[in-house]
Design a protein around this nucleic acid. Structure first.
Lengths: 214, 214
DNA sequence: ATCTTTCCCACCTAGGTGTGAACC
DNA sequence: ATGGTTCACACCTAGGTGGGAAAG
């Protein structure tokens, strides 16, 4: 169980919330080699997936969950001689954008029942992409996913979208999920891990099927 | 352009909103034969899809969209001698449930730009189904989809989920989208229309591929 | 008997992989 | 020349169809 890195001023209830990754072992394998994530013009899924396990919420209170990507530092990176090194200051033009979890406002009991995944969220290097489920990232920069949990006020009559108090926000960034956005993998070890563990890359595994012929 | 059937007490802005179906011609073909929709234990997609075209929203105001299914009347139905007839009173135990559009709160300009579809919403006959994107329906009963548009107050600092005034809700039910929930198709004409127009049923079309062998 | 539901199936759509060459 | 990006591609996962037999 990891401790959240960033906790905003908060009510006593919200600070009891704890978050960990559903596939922490897998993330650890990537993290140890410096995780890379491919960004494309049309949007690319992330692998490993962002799947969080949550506990400590109030069973009957409504919460909203969002995900965003934050720049880890102000540098550009490049892969040289087998390692990632800094290469000047970060490009300009990056703005954080938040994507609401598509399940909408749900009670704590719901969020805690099963892993919460954001696999419908894709990352892109196309600044003109207006898809609300796509996050624009800068290639060759380092990012960290930020899960934010908003506690809703008690529901009233009608639809339940009360105002969210700033103090009832909890932002969680797990260092193990940091990654560098790339348009093509740089580190062959990362490529091998992707092929080994991502079911969609099964066609590139040795012993399962031959490499693609051309 | 159809006129909304049901307009709740409303601000002047909200009443300017107009909604029509993106695939109205297709819905018309089904509606003329009494549309049937299959419900399953694990959830089934609807076909034709619920795809709405919207105009008349304020470009920069935020709106939330939801979908729900309403019982059209208090009867149970059965298909006898080639037609749907009433067969006693409706079963008990149906409760309307609302599903938020997964894009979350978006400005009017966004909702009006392209057809709004709810194809991630599935219908089921399993009362124990707790999936927030699944709607529990009673088989052999008649339903109508209800699109509800919630106008949000001007955004403040922080996250933008202000309270929604009851007067700023607009509920739209298009009679052409009424359907009877079934566990197996009753009317062969409906089956033929599904096979002809649903891409996933291509395997059952004559002249494209033979019927499945067993 | 009759009506309704469930299950597995062949067949299909939709779209997620890294590759390697081309492009810039 | 170098470094980063784009594209079509073969190969795969995932899952949406109604049919038909069986079950309830």
């Amino acid at each position: 169980m990891e401790t959240p890195e960033e906790i905003k001023p908060n009510t006593s209830q919200a600070t009891k919330i704890r978050v960990r990754l559903a596939t922490e072992d897998l993330w650890q394998k990537f993290s140890a080699q410096n995780t890379e994530m491919v960004v494309t013009k049309n949007g690319r899924k992330m692998f490993p997936k962002l799947e969080y396990l949550i506990d400590g919420m109030e069973e009957e209170t409504f919460y909203l969950l969002t995900i965003k990507m934050a720049l880890v530092d102000n540098f550009r990176y490049k892969f040289q001689s087998g390692e990632w090194i800094r290469s000047g200051r970060a490009d300009t033009g990056f703005e954080e954008k938040e994507v609401l979890h598509s399940d909408g406002p749900m009670v704590g009991a719901y969020w805690m029942r099963a892993p919460i995944n954001f696999e419908n969220v894709k990352i892109t290097n196309n600044p003109a992409d207006r898809n609300p489920k796509h996050l624009y990232l800068l290639s060759m920069h380092k990012f960290v996913p930020v899960l934010t949990i908003y506690k809703m006020p008690p529901k009233e009559d009608g639809i339940k979208f009360g105002q969210v108090d700033q103090r009832d926000q909890l932002a969680i960034r797990l260092p193990i999920t940091e990654f560098i956005a790339v348009t093509a993998y740089q580190n062959q070890t990362i490529t091998n891990l992707k092929i080994k563990h991502n079911p969609f890359a099964k066609g590139f595994r040795d012993g399962t099927a031959g490499p693609p012929k051309r």
